[in-house]
Amino acid sequence: MQLRAVKHTTTPEVKTVTAKRPRSIQWSYMFTSWLGFAPFLLFCLLFEILPAVMVIQASFVDSNSGVFTLNNYQRILAQTDKLHAFQNSIALGIITALLSGIIGFLAAYGVFNLRTSWLRNVIIGFSSIAANFAGIPLAFAFISTLGVTGFITVLLLTWFHIDLYNSLNFSLYSFWGLVLVYIYFELPLMILITLPALSTLRPEWREAATNLGASNFTYWRRVGLPLLFPSLVAATMLLFANSFGAFATAFALAQGGINLVPIQIQFVVNGNVNLDPGLGNALAGGMIVVLLIAVLLYSAMLRRVSKWQGR
């Protein structure tokens, strides 16, 4: 809300200043204003917007004849491994987002309730480091921990005679292994996103609810969670987008062995014989569509957050 107020006070000021000037000066003022914005805009056009436009446009074009076609998308639906790639990627996004969303929320509430502020700061600091620790190093950290010869794997085998790989059928280099790895950077991210939202819950609301006879459970069900709902959905969307689009960790873990959309796109770029650019564009276009839904939900929820929590 504050943000809106600031906007309202600044924009009319500019207008009144410019309105007094002759029309030509007003035009040149607007022109120089936009001219100062132009270098950045041009940079974004060249390296951000055009690649996205290119991918979407090319996904509707036959890569040999250059005519409009829906064939690229139809082939994704027809080829089971492409369809599976989408199913796997979406499932991976949803599972990691929900798991880290729920566990991360509880952990964030734990941090929120901590009385000792130095411990709080240490945990928040460590979460920021862990959330930034992703990609190739993270994959190798997990291979060193839970890989075939990893530290924990060997420890469990020699001390407790638990064979993760052969008797428990666990594999780090599989879908569920990837879930474990992705949760590593999603959990601290969830903690960092949820903490500010939690601090908007006023203690008075809880006191009022308790005075009216609400139990802890009723308070959360009727007051706490409904208020936090938009922030939580927005956070989950962010987590989903984060793991749905991630490539590096999955690639380093299984070197292309797990069938995901980003892995398939990399095959296209590397010139895999079974894949042509048209199919690659359709895969990329499909990713954009899925992510667009997540981003739209994310920004819609953020708008509701600012409405409720009086920012």
Binding site: V14, F47, E48, A241, F244, I265, V269, P277, V295
Partner: peptide, 29 residues
């Protein structure tokens, strides 16, 4: 240019919808 703020916000949001793998592929093309 306060009226360009929504555009700025949009440009800062696009990398969420276009992950690095798609952007790299698009840049090469």
């Amino acid at each position: 240019l306060p009226q360009a703020r929504p555009m700025m916000d949009f440009l800062a949001l696009v990398p969420f919808a276009v992950p690095a793998i798609v952007m790299g592929f698009g840049l090469i093309e």
